[in-house]
């Protein structure tokens, strides 16, 4: 088949999309993390203005489609005289979007630290900044690692949307190869597998991070490759076993 030969010719071009996808994911996550902390603090602030503006940002980004946000940044912002390069527009939208979702995780993690910790810090007359950065945040971070892993994998998949605003990532290149090759099955299958490999690797790296943090905090860590968790809470008799 001649089709297969030319597909191999296109493979290097496709693979060049991987660093682009990773770059978009990295920058967007780099933006999303501080944004989520700021939004979480804003939501819990004692100032009404801060609560309202954080709530406005969060609800806007969570209430509409990510793709329409991206198109809005790309097609509408120039009307306001704001001309963002595609990469900046993509990173900005993905970062703010994920930051809005992740702010709930941050809020939950900060809230889960016992009130006693905060009260003790206040009683000891520790300054506000010290209280947040040295008492609250270090205890909240380990709790946030598993959801961070989910968010990272989510962002990897999410980043495919930037291909629709002319960024030459993995998805963009797959689409380009499809049009010039006129054959789509293998190219999209390969692309899906490449994304899957990246997602598995990202999840694994976060798992390593989680174990490292837990070990440093003196907590027990389980085996690295746990077998698929079985449905433990359902007794065998309920599943028809004799």
């Amino acid at each position: 088949m001649t089709g297969n030969a030319s597909l191999i010719d296109y493979l290097p071009f496709l693979l060049q999309g991987i660093p682009v996808t990773l770059e978009v994911t990295f920058y967007a996550m780099l933006l999303a993390m501080p944004v989520s902390v700021i939004l979480a603090l804003g939501r819990g602030s004692q100032w009404r203005a801060a609560r309202w503006s954080a709530g406005f940002v969060i609800e806007t980004f969570r209430g509409t489609s990510a793709l329409i946000q991206l198109f809005w940044a790309f097609y509408v912002l120039p009307f306001f005289g704001i001309n963002l390069p595609p990469l900046a527009a993509g990173v900005l939208v993905l970062g703010l979007n994920e930051g809005s979702y992740f702010s709930e995780v941050v809020r939950g993690a900060l809230g889960s630290i016992m009130a006693g910790q905060r009260e003790a810090a206040i009683a000891l007359h520790l300054p506000r900044r010290y209280r947040f950065f040295r008492i609250m945040l270090p205890q909240a971070l380990p709790i946030m690692i598993p959801p961070f892993g989910n968010a990272l994998v989510g962002m990897l998949k999410f980043s495919a949307l930037v291909s629709l605003v002319t960024i030459q990532d993995l998805s963009f290149r797959a689409g380009l190869i499809r049009t010039s090759l006129g054959e789509s099955g293998p190219i999209f299958a390969i692309t899906l597998v490449l994304y899957f490999i990246m997602a598995v690797m990202a999840a694994f790296l976060v798992k390593l991070l989680e174990r490292w943090v837990n070990r440093r905090a003196g907590r027990e860590v389980g085996p690295l490759f746990a077998s698929q968790r079985a449905m433990t809470t359902i007794p065998a008799w309920a599943l028809g076993a004799k």
């Binding site: 629709l164 789509s184 899906l192």
Partner: peptide, 15 residues
């Protein structure tokens, strides 16, 4: 769960 919705849509539509 590990692959982008956009590419899955392309796959279904073109394949």
């Amino acid at each position: 769960r590990g692959t982008p919705f956009l590419v899955q849509v392309y796959f279904l539509f073109y394949v």
